[in-house]
Structures are given as structure tokens and as C-alpha cells.
Design a binder for these strands. Structure first.
Lengths: 336, 336
DNA sequence: TATTGTTACGAAAACGGTTAAGTAAATAAA
DNA sequence: TTTATTTACTTAACCGTTTTCGTAACAATA
């Protein structure tokens, strides 16, 4: 297993380790012929640098961490793809850390990052997150942090978000124009900025159409599918069942379909449904689901790009850098 | 930024760095009271160990790498969730490396891994991969490698797969029993073991029912959705259009729906469709898609578990360790 | 000729945590 | 009492790469 190190390479070449290191880094201090010799020998001995030795010495890891609640969701999957594409292009690695929607886990991960494991952080916070302390701490250490999608208030750094309020407005407006009188809004954690924004947009659209906002139309949902299904079915059986539903996250839309099927409620005749979703199958659902489609891949790319700007240029400030990438309303059969 | 290192901690405690290191590792060489003092001071100074220094010295990174073609796919997303769950439990980090289905990229990533970036590798190879050399090289260096789903022949190591041949057999058998006479099989890269297995199962089912296998019923597909759509539509317009279709990977199923819609072909009346898929929305598609559902999360978990067994026990051999987790045929409307 | 610059390389000290080997002091065994 | 053992530490040498500071050798300039 005797790994070939830079010193062994150097010995083979009758050079010093320093020279080899510089040659591999294409330093101007090293002559052309020597560089060539080094490269050739490195290839011949199949030399692979130890990334940890390098990270230790240079105090950079060429790694970014992506911290997010879950990955079994079209939005985050697509976002990871966007992030990884950029990172790979820059020669960086991507550490994926899942919080499973638990703020404690999130804090533990963030604390670990203080050790310098990653040069920068992309984060979409859990729905429980309210305390910005761990993130602030990282910032103070000089680790750039970029939020994407789910941001945490109280921290002044870059954010890549979509136009949550307007999207919810558009969704609500669309339902009203399609004749809905009572629109339920399926919400997740109200502490979350995106949740708050979306609810705001929903309220504004109601107001704009002269419909009085009814607090009980905001349906708080959880991460437990069974539980959500139960409450949805209960709502479907109600006397005054809503005639429109906005699912503020993807999986809630699927749960609505399930609840409607089990309660024999027809979409869109009995109830119109619109979902925030990136499902590639939205158009082929029964009925085809009207969606607010988020630019997941682009958001991932944008977040990573911004992070790399900060990494490449220490004087580049992420502060106040808010990028809003608009979502798109795609009208389909579920709101006809 | 003056990071707090173990030596600074030691100075504050009037101890040596070695003592502190051992105390933090809960070594028996250190007395109870001293351990307590160390822990307290570490917390007070907010000490976070530098993972790279540790990795360099100990020659282990507490990191595993997951190398896969793409992540925007239900199967891989769910698998990552399974893998991450186990890794987190073991105190390991997960590096996600995407090959974008390019074997060259895959080789570059694998070569990098020789440097010791990860203690173990989970890999699902690209559809182009045929050369096992890079993987063998890693094995020779003592890096345990576990295949999941897409394996590469010529390497003797653990594999977590699903019962591809039987699943394809079941799918084909099901279509035949539903009355299909001409069943097209949408295949990706025939070099891939799963592809090969699935085709074998398909052929066997045909034979079992006394149907002659027709080579032109194997439709080679690519990673280019547009291109696939074009060939699918062409097939749909054919004189002797197939009356059954097996989509051997998830996204092909969606493309079939699209092609059928655009060519006004009814599922299941004109053509019955079955797909290898983990779509949570399969049951809500129009029509509900009959699927071979792969145990993605479980496969991820199993692969990671096996890898950690190898990491925890140097004498544990991954060789010959093949675990087959069965897929499930879920009959829905698309094959009625 | 003396001085300054340039080129191409080497020696050695980092980076921060771990660990083998060593050592005083206290305790146990002979 | 002497010797062996245990306890609780410390010293110093790693791990492999990078980087600062030298320094010969040679060229260019004054």
C-alpha cells in the first residue's frame, strides 16, 4: 500500500519535494524541462496528491457543503444537480449534509463546519430553524454562507430565492379567476420565511379580489404524510369544504390527490388544486397538475456561482446580495 | 480568525497537547477530572478539531464517497437518503460525486479517490462504463468499494442489486397475460449489467410464453430526452406498433406518456405501459402507471451498511457478497 | 571589475492532531 | 526494603503538502 508521496516522487527524480510541489503547481520558479520530467514521472508512478495534507497546509479544502433538509424531493434533487455542476467545474467537491428537518442536527453540522471542513456553505434551513447563532458564528470565522430557497432571518448574507409572495399571489389569483370561493392553503412551518412569504401572497390576492381572509383556511401540515392525509381527508369531509387548494410544497400536492381519491372528490370539478412543485410528471398526473414551478436547477447554479465568487475574491461581499429567480405558473387541468 | 487549536486549548489548561488529544478521545490514559476539565475548556473556547489534520495523521477521513450518474431521478435521490442516514449514524460524511453518465468523468473521480479522500466508495457506474481498471486500482489500495444498482463486471466486490432479471420477467409476463402480442423494451446502454439482466428477463418471459424474440423490439434509448421522444413517436406511428412497452428506467416511462399523448395513442387501450420507476406519483398519473418499484432507500441503506462493515473490520471481505433486494410489481391502470 | 538581477532549485519550517515512547510519582508485590 | 507495576501525564516525531527564505550559478548592467 506504500502510497507514493511527493517525497518519493522527488527521490525518483533526484529533486527536492519543494521543486516537485512547485512543478506540479506549474510555478514560474521551475524550468520547463523540469516540469515536464515531473509530470511524466508523476503519471508513471500514478501519483495522487493527498488532499488532506494540502487542505491542512493551505487552509482550504476545495470542498463546499450543501446543507439541506432532505433530498427525496424534486426541488432539492434538481438543486443539487445545479450546485454540483458548478462545483465540479471549479474543481470543488460537494459534501451533502442532510438535517432531516431537525434544527438540532443542523446546528451540529454547522458547528462541525467551524473546523474548516468546507470552504463555503450553501444552506436551505430546516422548517424549525429560528436561531441564526450557528450560522453567524461561521460567518465570523470567514466562511461564506449562501442561503437558497429557505432562508433564515437575522443574517446578512446572500440569498437565492424565488418570488414566493408573487407566486402564491399568482396561484391564488388564478384559483379565484377559475371561480374558487374558498381556498385552503396547505402550509408548512410558519416560522419559515418562504412559508410566510407564500401566505402573504395568498392573503394579498384574496384582499385584491375582496375576499375576506379566514385564518382557518391556512392548514398547518407536518412532515408526517399519514398525519397530513388524515387532516386532509377530514377537511374533504367537512360541511364547507374548500373549492380550491394551494399546496405550498410538492409532497403536499401528492397527498391532496391521495386524499381526494380516497374521499371520492373530483379534481377539478369539486375542488381545484395547484401545487408548488417541480415534478416532471405534473403534466401527466390525473388530472394534470397546475403548478408553480420553481427554477430549482437554476437556483442551485446561482447559489453555487455566488458562493464561488465569494471564495475567489475575499473582498466580494455577499451581504445584501439577494437574487430572486422567478417561478412560473403552469396552468393545467387540475384548475380547469 | 486565530483558530483555537488543540495546542491553544492545552496552553489554557496547562496541559500538553497530547493529553488534551487523548482526553478528547476519552482515552483510559487520562484521569476523570482531567477529562472533565478538558471537555469544559473545549466547550468554553468553542474548540472544533480540524478534520484534515486528523485525517492526515490517521489516514482516515471519516468520509465516504457516493459516485453516481445523476441525482435528478427518484431512484438515486432515495438511495442517497438511505446512504446518508447510515453514514450520519456512523459519524461519517458523504461526498456526492456526479459522473453525468460520462465514463471519463467517472475515471477522473475514481483516480482522485486514490489520494485517500474517502475511506470507502459506493458507486453506481455510468452506462458507458466497461473498464474496471480504475476501480480495481482503488481496491488494490485497500479502499473498499461497494456497487449498488449499476454494477461493473470484472470486479469482485460487494453488490447491492435488485432482481433485475426476475423483475423484467414479471413485467413481461404481466403484459403478455394482459394480452400483449408485441412488446417493445426500451433499453439504455446494453453494456450495463442491469440493462443486460433486464433484457434477459424479458427474453425469458417471451420464450416461456412461446413468443419469438424479435431483436427490433429492443429499442435503444439515450440520455437525450428529445432524441428518445423522436424515436418513440416514430415507433408509435409505425404500421406494426407495439401493443406493450417496458420502460427499463424511470424517465423513459415519462417519455412514453409524452409520446403517446402527442401521437394520440391511448394507454392502456392502444398500448400498455409498464415502467421501472420509483415515482411517488406513479399512482396518480393518467393513467396510473404500473411499475416495477425498486427498493431505492433500502438499497442505499444496505450498500452503506455493508461498506461500514468493511470499514469497521479490515478482515471482513466484501468479495462474493451479493445482496439482492427484490423489486415489486405494482399493477395499475396503464396495463389494464 | 564590481554590482545587481534573474533563474532554478533546495532546506526547513510550518499546518494541527495523533501516537509511540518515555518518565516521574504513586502504589502494589516480593 | 527493594522491585515491579500502574497511573497520568509529556516529549517529540510523525502524516504529506506548501511556502518562505535561502543560495548557488549565471547574465546583465554600470
Amino acid at each position: 500500500m506504500g502510497n507514493v508521496t511527493i517525497r518519493i516522487l522527488a527521490r525518483h527524480l533526484q529533486l527536492s519535494a519543494a521543486t516537485v510541489s512547485k512543478a506540479l503547481a506549474d510555478s514560474h520558479e521551475i524550468s520547463g524541462p523540469t516540469k515536464k520530467r515531473v509530470l511524466e514521472m508523476a503519471a508513471a508512478l500514478n501519483y495522487t496528491p493527498n488532499p488532506y495534507a494540502s487542505s491542512l497546509r493551505r487552509k482550504k479544502s476545495r470542498t463546499i457543503a450543501v446543507i439541506l433538509p432532505e433530498v427525496a424531493d424534486s426541488f432539492f434533487s434538481q438543486a443539487i444537480n445545479g450546485i454540483e455542476a458548478i462545483a465540479q467545474d471549479k474543481g470543488y467537491h460537494v459534501l451533502v449534509c442532510l438535517t432531516h428537518e431537525r434544527t438540532l442536527k443542523e446546528q451540529a453540522i454547522l458547528h462541525e463546519m467551524l473546523g474548516g471542513r468546507a470552504d463555503g456553505i450553501l444552506i436551505s434551513v430546516t422548517s424549525e430553524t429560528t436561531d441564526p447563532a450557528s450560522i453567524l458564528e461561521l460567518q465570523e470565522k470567514g466562511v461564506p454562507v449562501v442561503f437558497f430557497d429557505r432562508v433564515c432571518e437575522g443574517i446578512d448574507t446572500a440569498r437565492i430565492v424565488t418570488d414566493d409572495a408573487q407566486s402564491a399571489y399568482k396561484a391564488t389569483d388564478h384559483l379565484i379567476r377559475q371561480g374558487c370561493k374558498q381556498i385552503a392553503f396547505l402550509a408548512i412551518s410558519e416560522g419559515l420565511s418562504i412559508s410566510h412569504q407564500r401566505i402573504e401572497g395568498y392573503k394579498q390576492a384574496l384582499t385584491a379580489h375582496g375576499i375576506r381572509f379566514n385564518g382557518s383556511d391556512i392548514i398547518p401540515c407536518t412532515h408526517d404524510a399519514e398525519e397530513n392525509l388524515r387532516s386532509l381527508k377530514k377537511i374533504m369531509r367537512q360541511q364547507h369544504r374548500p373549492d380550491g387548494i394551494i399546496a405550498s410544497v410538492e409532497k403536499l400536492a401528492v397527498q391532496v390527490y391521495q386524499a381526494c381519491r380516497e374521499e371520492n372528490i373530483r379534481i377539478p370539478e369539486d375542488i381545484k388544486v395547484i401545487g408548488f412543485s417541480n415534478l416532471v410528471t405534473a403534466a401527466y398526473l390525473n388530472p394534470a397538475l397546475t403548478t408553480i414551478t420553481q427554477p430549482a436547477f437554476e437556483m442551485g447554479r446561482a447559489a453555487a456561482s455566488l458562493l464561488f465568487k465569494a471564495l475567489g475574491n475575499k473582498s466580494f461581499s455577499l451581504s445584501q446580495n439577494i437574487q430572486v429567480i422567478p417561478s412560473e405558473l403552469q396552468v393545467r387541468d387540475s384548475t380547469h
